[in-house]
Amino acid sequence: MKSETIPAVHIQQKPLRRNFSAEIFEKIMRVLFSVCGFIAVGFVVVITIFLIISGVPAIKEIGLTEFLFGTKWLPTADTPKYGIMPFVLSSVYGTFGAILIGVPLGILCAVFLTKISGKRIGGAVSGAVNLMAGIPSVVYGLVGMIVIVPTVRENFGLPDGANLFSAILVLAVMILPSVISVSETALNAVPKEFEEASLALGATKTETIFKVTIPAAKSGILAAVVLGVGRAIGEAMAVMMVSGNVANMPKIFGSVRFLTTAVASEMSYSSGLQRQALFSIALVLFIFIMVINLVLNLVIKREKK
């Protein structure tokens, strides 16, 4: 189109000048959107402040070392003891176990989805994984309670199947969707040339996947692992239904209580120092999660480089 054909009528002679009220309206909208923008920051700050304010007093009263490293949790005894070591260790062991089972399974499934399956089977499997991510945690807990707990009890000849092992099994299943989806992204991001070079050198397809693609995607897969850790350590309801919920030091076939379930199980009836100690447990859990988030961020940043 030639520029001469544009009618000159539409070009305004006066400089553009919006009316006053429109300008004020724009300013107001700008402020409104900015407020919305920073509301997430506000929420994080408020959550942190509330957790610290309500969590610190009990730690002060009990003493930090006794609180963190005490091995006995007896809040209702004559001389109450508030040691949360059993919860911390149970959470750590439970998470570790879940990662040990869930991550290899998840990575292999991600390999299947990205490299091996055809479109139709792959679509079906990834639909299944998506559905798995959406199933409420109480449903996992219920199935664990009815299926896994009795199976564990009978197969290992235990008086009660609600123990750390059952919790690990349930958690391993629950972290699968996040592990799979993040590893999938990581595997897809590996440049095609890497694989082509490996294939051209005579490696088989499977060798290429395991010796070239997975090592090249390792920081993304690490992110998947860290995300899985976050999911497992934060899960409350499902764990509560299958772990037996007694404040023991963790044993693989012993009834245990996680950090999350310690908060959830006593909150409804506790009072006084016991209640405050629960807030302190939440604070400890929050610090765990923040550290995991930090690691996750570092891993992702390194991957981007």
Partner: peptide, 15 residues
């Protein structure tokens, strides 16, 4: 902040 919120477990939200 958004990522942090997404990572906080629901039991802490409850509390």
């Amino acid at each position: 902040a958004t990522e942090t919120l997404a990572g906080i477990p629901s039991i802490i939200y409850g509390l």
